[in-house]
């Protein structure tokens, strides 16, 4: 279970008023729950997700995963905490010049020595798990391809494998579909939902496509200007709540699109 309490992030100098990216965010994500984070650009979605694994250092507040503190720890403890959190990126962030297999195995870096990483000598169990994962996401036989030879959807599948091989308790997913076409987007979202269910994984998914979030995710959190303004099931997203999150606009089309898909 992930608990975030009083999380505040201020960019710029500590004493100055600075830009408040996040203000006093409290969130709890229970084991196995899929949570979508929606909100306009600059609302702090990306900052929030990066604060959880401290790629961005929080200014104030506490974060803990399964009772183990993530904030306020030293470098070694932080690396240990990061092993328990798989991250998936908008533009895949694969190492472009390495093979698919090396990219997947990079998820085990937190568990192996420097020399194992240097010589690419990973434990056999890790390699077997990598093959199983590639098989599961439909990438069998692609392990020796270089990442820059893959299509967007394939890259994101490799990205998912890299996160899952960490054997995480939580997935941090940053705009997984923003660089993909609509069909591939749905495939990737469906894959994520299935995998989380299979492994009883919690996940925070940043997503700007409200319809896609409503379609796949049971809990939605709306962020506006660094504050949580909505927290509830997708059915709770009425034109009023969407206005509260994104501002004044005609929302009927967005909501109807969802109903069409369900029907």
């Amino acid at each position: 279970m992930l608990t975030i309490s009083g999380l505040t992030k201020r960019y710029g100098s500590k004493n100055a008023v600075g830009d408040l990216a996040l203000t006093n965010v409290d969130l709890t994500v229970p084991k196995g729950q899929l949570m979508a984070l929606i909100g306009p650009s600059g609302a702090g979605k990306s900052t929030l997700i990066r604060c959880v694994n401290r790629l961005v250092e929080p200014t104030e507040g506490r974060i803990a995963l399964d009772g183990v503190a993530v904030t306020g720890t030293g470098a070694t403890a932080l690396r240990r905490a990061r092993r328990r959190m798989g991250m998936i990126f908008q533009e895949y962030a694969l190492i472009e010049r390495l093979t698919v297999m090396e990219n997947v195995l990079s998820g085990r870096l937190g568990y192996v020595s420097f020399f194992a990483a240097w010589a690419r000598r990973f434990p056999r169990a890790d390699v077997a798990e990598a093959f199983r994962l590639l098989d599961r996401v439909g990438m069998r036989g692609m392990e020796d391809k270089r990442a820059d030879e893959l299509s967007g959807g394939q890259r994101q599948r490799v990205g998912i494998c890299r996160a899952l091989i960490q054997n995480p308790a939580l997935l941090l997913v940053d705009e997984p579909t923003a660089s993909l076409d609509p069909k591939t987007s749905r495939q990737i979202m469906r894959l994520l939902v299935e995998l989380c269910a299979e492994r009883n994984l919690a996940a925070i998914v940043n997503i700007h496509d409200v319809a896609l979030a409503q379609m796949f995710v049971p809990r939605i959190v709306g962020l506006r200007a660094g504050r949580v303004v909505f927290d509830g099931p997708p059915e709770g997203l009425t034109p009023e709540t969407l206005t509260a999150i994104y501002g004044e606009e005609d929302w009927t089309a967005t909501i109807r699109a969802l109903e069409d898909d369900d029907g």
Partner: peptide
């Protein structure tokens, strides 16, 4: 393929 557990990067 799935059974093989050793793997090294292609030269």
């Amino acid at each position: 393929m799935g059974d093989s557990v050793s793997w090294s990067p292609p030269p």
